[in-house]
């Protein structure tokens, strides 16, 4: 009798837990769902209160967005800038993390903390100096400029992540590699990097996502030439008042590539981000 009720209680708590998990997931997912739904509504339906759940979907927003702006231009900028900044970031972060993880000094920890602390500074605080620097050096509205600034923004996180992955590698293995006659380059490329390829992949993914979604600097430092998708979205929100449906359509278009990308690589991302925990 008691055993049965215990079992029942367990089943019940399992159901409750599942329900709770689904609710949380739904709450997180809801804005995206709503955005996608709205993008298929007419402007009128998009405004309606109470919101209409059943409507005949239309593609007119998408047609208008494609008609009015050169989506591919912005998308290509986003791709080039995200990949460029990620590549440059990795080229800088791997050697930095290597030095910190395997040749630790008493200042390494504080250097790491200091690097991370730069992330706590509100970006707007350095907007004017950066803007002026960019203007003077001709970097305004160039993809190079954005690649540089994104690299610098993400570098602390990338170094920190790669540092933690490197820390998991026993020093012995690198020493064995040195005994085996590997040069520093071979040691890193043939032993160290393959050993943390999961972690490196998630660092790359995270950097790509962060670059793709960055809006503050892209809005302030680009105009037409180097503007990525985030700037395209913004261009739909300000000048002519708010057009929810078109804004949703352009947002959906901007998010779609990275969402699909993230979906495909989510396993990798989760494994990388919980490296130490699972192993």
């Amino acid at each position: 009798m008691i055993a049965l009720s215990q079992k029942q209680r367990r089943v019940f708590s399992q159901i409750a837990l599942t329900a709770a998990a689904w609710s949380v997931a739904f709450i997180i997912f809801f804005p995206i769902l709503w955005m996608v739904l709205t993008s298929f509504k007419t402007e009128l339906e998009a405004f309606a209160t109470p919101p209409s759940l059943f409507f005949s979907p239309t593609l007119e927003n998408y047609q208008e967005v494609f008609g009015r702006s050169d989506y591919m231009h912005y998308a290509w900028n986003s791709v080039v800038i995200s990949m460029g900044a990620t590549l440059l970031g990795m080229l800088l972060a791997v050697p930095a993390a290597y030095a910190m993880a395997f040749y630790e000094t008493k200042r390494t920890q504080s250097t790491l903390l200091w690097m991370l602390s730069t992330k706590m500074l509100p970006p707007v605080g350095v907007l004017v100096p950066i803007y002026l620097l960019f203007k003077e050096s001709g970097l305004l509205d160039t993809r190079t400029g954005l690649i540089l600034i994104y690299t610098l923004i993400n570098l602390p996180i990338m170094v920190w992540m790669i540092y933690t992955y490197f820390k998991e590698i026993p020093k012995d293995i690198l020493e064995a590699c040195r005994m085996d006659g590997a040069t520093l380059g071979q040691e890193i490329s043939r032993v160290l990097l393959p050993m943390c390829k999961g972690g490196l992949a998630s660092t790359v993914l995270l950097s790509l996502i962060l670059c793709w979604n960055e809006a503050f600097w892209s809005l302030n430092l680009t105009a037409a030439n180097a503007a990525p998708l985030t700037a395209l979205i913004a261009s739909y929100s300000s000048p002519e008042g708010l057009f929810w449906a078109k804004l949703s359509a352009v947002s959906t278009l901007a998010c779609a590539p990275i969402l699909i990308f993230g979906w495909i690589s989510q396993k990798q991302l989760v494994r990388g981000l919980s490296f130490g925990a699972v192993k």
Binding site: P170, D172, I173, E175, A176, C177, R178, M179, D180, G181, A182, R190, V191, P194, M195
Partner: peptide, 27 residues
């Protein structure tokens, strides 16, 4: 180390985890 013509066996074995036994030995 590599120029000294010595080989070392570590307490932790320090095998390369991403290589098979053959690769470990031939590296």
């Amino acid at each position: 180390p590599a120029e000294r013509d010595l080989a070392m066996v570590f307490q932790s074995y320090a095998l390369y985890p991403h290589m098979n036994v053959r690769k470990n030995m031939s590296f």
